[in-house]
Design a protein around this nucleic acid. Structure first.
Lengths: 117, 117
DNA sequence: TCATTCGTGTACCATATACTACACACTACT
DNA sequence: AGTAGTGTGTAGTATATGGTACACGAATGA
C-alpha cells in the first residue's frame, strides 16, 4: 500500500529539489508541528495527522487538500456532507467505479459535467 | 440536520413496534454498550459511536453498515479504499453529484451499471 | 575545521474519544 | 400493590489520538 506518508515525502522531496526551504525541519516549522513528528508521518511510523494539519500541509506544498485528506482516509468536509445526504445512492455509485478503468471514470466525470444530467 | 441519532432511533422504534426486544436497553445489551450511552447517541447528545459499534448496530437492526457509517461521517472500509486509489478523480465526480437531483444520480448509477463504460 | 542544518530516535504528555457505572423516576403488567 | 422493565441524567474512566521536547550522529557549507 502506497500510503499517505510515502506520497507526502515524494511531494516534499520534489519541491525540495528546487527550494531548499522544503526540508523536514523547515516545512514542519511552517506547518506548525515538530520535525520529528513530520518525519515519522512521512515514514508511516505515525498515522496521518489531524485534518487541520493535513490542510496546512496541503497549503504549504501547494496540493489539493481533498486529495491529501482522501489519501489519509478522512473524507474532506464537503465531500463527507455530500455523501451523508445520500449514503446509499452514492455508495452504490462508488462501488461501480471500482471496476472501471481510469479513462472511463474520467469520461464519466466529463459527461456528467457537460451533459444535462 | 437529520443526524445519525435520529435515523437510529427511527429504525429502532420501527423494529420495536413489531418486536419488544428492540428496547434501548435490550438492543444496547446485544450490541455491547450501556443503555444510557445508546440513549444519548440516539438523541444526538453523544456523537456517533465507533466503527465497531456502528457495525454491531447495523447487524442487529438489519441495516446496511455502509449507509450507517456514511451517515456517521466515517467512510466504510471498502469505500474509503476505492476513493483512496483515485482521490482526485472521484472527489471531482462526487462534487458533480452535489448539484444533481436524486433521480439523475439514480439514472447515472443504472447507466454505469448497464452500459459498457 | 567549525558552526549549521539535517533527519531521526526515545520518552513523554494533554486532550479527545468512546465509552462505563449507577441511580432515579416512570410505566406495564399480574 | 409489587415486581420487572423502560428511558435517561450525572459522574467518572481507560485508551487512543495527536502531538511535544530534546538529544544524537551524519551531512553540508564557509
Amino acid at each position: 500500500m502506497k500510503g499517505f506518508g510515502d506520497y507526502l515525502r515524494k511531494v516534499r522531496e520534489q519541491r525540495r529539489s528546487e527550494d531548499a526551504t522544503f526540508s523536514v525541519r523547515q516545512l514542519a516549522s511552517r506547518v506548525g508541528v515538530e520535525p520529528s513528528y513530520l518525519s515519522k508521518v512521512e515514514r508511516g511510523q505515525q498515522p496521518p495527522p489531524s485534518e487541520k494539519t493535513i490542510a496546512a500541509l496541503a497549503r504549504e506544498l501547494d496540493q489539493d487538500p481533498d486529495v491529501l485528506l482522501a489519501m489519509a482516509g478522512k473524507g474532506s468536509g464537503d465531500l463527507q456532507a455530500i455523501i451523508r445526504n445520500r449514503p446509499k445512492l452514492i455508495a452504490d455509485l462508488i462501488r461501480q467505479l471500482k471496476d472501471m478503468p481510469d479513462h472511463a471514470v474520467l469520461r464519466l466525470v466529463r459527461e456528467v459535467r457537460d451533459g444535462d444530467w
